[in-house]
Write a protein that binds this DNA or RNA. Structure first.
Length: 504
RNA sequence: CGGAAUGUAGCUCAGCCUGGUAGAGCACUACGUUCGGGACGUAGGGGCCAUGGGUUCAAAUCCCGUCAUUCCGACCA
């Protein structure tokens, strides 16, 4: 029995269904916010672990900055404040008092505090104190935190008022070094997306009108969702000297002269979990890539007769312990025996909907044969879904099976990305015709909309045109052909290659 | 923040038009039958009908306000 809504019947509803049946998150009673449930948070913890290791490998250190930022800090960088002004949560009072039987805010603050939507301004303030000499540079820090942006139309994982992220901030002595840092971090994001999340991405740079407020250059990775929309899965900004000048991050160079530092910032958010769902989930629920699955193998005991319970559980634990000593992706396998007092089938389907990669059923028959019944999540509804495997064979091959699982997820997503990225659209008229369709599940049939790779002339008038077509330039990809062609919005001569799409 | 729709049990919804103080299915609990099956039977628990006000002898039902959710738009990771 598939979900209430499928990808084909109602894509947005399907997305919410997956989150709900997989117990990943729910809408909170606190408006616009989400509760991230253990299975969803477990995935986030795995992503954190993988990414945190990479961030530290490069030489960044974790630290923590305040949640509250004085209002005046935002006034220092004009572009920055303009970009965020419309979506800020502002603390104006410090206590409640009872007035006419109603709790009323009282103790008005001298200066209102902003609940951080991002921390460039407050971190730049610290950087200015930390940096005196070129010998103090570079500064390379990162923080795992929550941020608040007052969204008017929330969607679980994709757009909520509060979300979790990692934000890295660095300061460097030279333009080149800072720019290289921004690009290095983009590479890290792309690799983590591909290697851990099994999600292929397109690396590129944002056009001028899509840049982060206050940035010189914004780099990004863009992924293709199953309805052909683009989702920005990570972003890295080269901030030039903009924030250094507004916060006075200056240092003395080796010639004794004062110079402004060059800064960067980069981040990924819990939105990645949304992208994971729309990359891998199917009409039966979630499918979690093994490297970030909280449980990679779940063992469900089949107990028909209570007298067999002890023996079957002992066998299940023997299997779990044998599997746990196996190594996949440099770590011991994460294995769970589901001992809850529930029907075995119910448990099996629950793990299917949650998307645990491998589910093993073990019962009396398996003890007899020294085997197990293996269900491989991504093969659901195919002949390879259910297989009887011997105990020893499974223990020996489990890491390889998880590796294959990851590969298959990646290949399916990569195939979708390649097959739905049109490069044969050559005129503004063809472009209009292509984007005349609504986005819907790209199931290989005709009339589907996804990405178009083509030319852009950079004229300001194209921005309005794209708004009308409800599309945007997702990025200017790294691999430019440098051949002259025709702009897909104006038919004017153009050489810049861009990715056009609708987006989340 | 603009437009539309919706708000009744944990979930999906009926009841509202034509006022008379609550229903179904699923889920949950117990017992039983089954079960490597996305079961079945019997019994049971659970709702001051989003919220505040108004009309009325009487409001889930009619009227007004507020809040929330979903979809569309603007904005955004």
């Amino acid at each position: 029995m598939p979900l209430k809504s499928t990808r084909g019947s109602n894509y947005p509803d399907w997305y919410q269904n997956v989150i709900s049946v997989a117990d990943m998150a729910e809408v909170s009673s606190s408006p616009g916010c989400m509760v991230i449930r253990p299975w969803g948070y477990g995935i986030w913890e795995r992503i954190q672990r993988v990414l945190d290791d990479k961030i530290k490998e490069i030489g960044h250190e974790n630290c923590y900055f305040p949640l509250f930022i004085p209002l005046s800090y935002f006034q220092k960088e004009a572009e920055h404040v303009e970009g965020f002004a419309k979506e800020m949560a502002i603390v104006t009072h410090s206590r409640l008092t009872m007035q006419d039987g109603k709790l009323t805010p009282d103790g008005k603050l001298e200066e209102p505090l902003i609940v951080r939507p991002t921390s460039e301004t407050i971190i730049a303030d610290s950087f200015s104190k930390w940096v005196k000499s070129y010998r103090d540079l570079p500064i390379m820090i990162n923080q795992w935190a929550n941020v608040v942006r007052w969204e008017m139309r929330p969607r679980l994982f994709l757009r909520t008022r509060e979300f979790l992220w990692q934000e890295g901030h660095t300061a460097h002595a030279t333009y080149e070094e800072a720019e290289k840092e921004a690009k290095t971090m983009l590479d890290v994001y792309a690799k983590v997306a591909q290697n851990a999340l099994a999600m292929p991405v397109i690396k590129g740079r944002k056009p001028e009108h899509e840049k982060f407020p206050g940035a010189v250059d914004t780099y990004c990775i863009e992924a293709m969702m199953q309805d052909g929309r683009a989702l920005q899965a990570g972003t890295s900004h080269f901030l030039g000297q903009n924030f250094a000048k507004s916060a006075n991050i200056r240092f003395q160079n080796n010639e004794g002269k004062q110079e402004y530092a060059y800064t960067t910032s980069w981040g990924v958010t819990t939105r990645l979990i949304g992208s994971l769902i729309m990359t891998h989930a199917d009409d039966e629920g979630m499918v979690v890539p093994p490297k970030i699955a909280p449980q990679q193998v779940v063992i469900v005991p089949i107990i028909k007769d209570k007298s067999q319970k002890e023996e079957i559980l002992a066998y299940a634990h023997k299997l779990a312990s044998a599997l746990s000593s196996q190594i996949y992706d440099g770590e011991k396998l994460r294995v769970k025996v589901d001992e809850r007092d529930k029907e075995a089938v119910d448990k099996m389907w629950e793990w299917t909907r949650k998307g645990a990669p491998l589910v093993c059923e073990v019962g009396a028959r398996d003890i007899q044969n020294n085997g197990l019944m293996l269900r491989t999540r991504n093969k659901i509804n195919t002949p390879d879904w259910k297989k009887v495997v011997s105990f020893d064979n499974f223990v020996q091959t489990v890491s390889e099976r998880l590796g294959t699982f990851h590969q298959e997820l990646y290949q399916a997503a990569d195939k979708r990305l390649k097959e739905n990225q049109r490069t044969d659209i050559k005129t503004a008229e063809e472009m209009q015709a292509y984007f005349s369709h609504q986005n819907s599940w790209i199931d290989g049939s005709e009339g589907k909309v996804a990405f178009v790779r083509g030319k852009w002339c950079e004229d300001p008038e194209t921005v309005e045109k794209m708004k009308e077509m409800k599309i945007s330039i997702r990025c200017i990809p790294e691999d430019q052909t440098n051949e002259e062609g025709v702009c897909l919005l104006t038919n004017k001569k153009a050489t810049l290659d861009v990715i056009y799409a609708r987006s989340y």
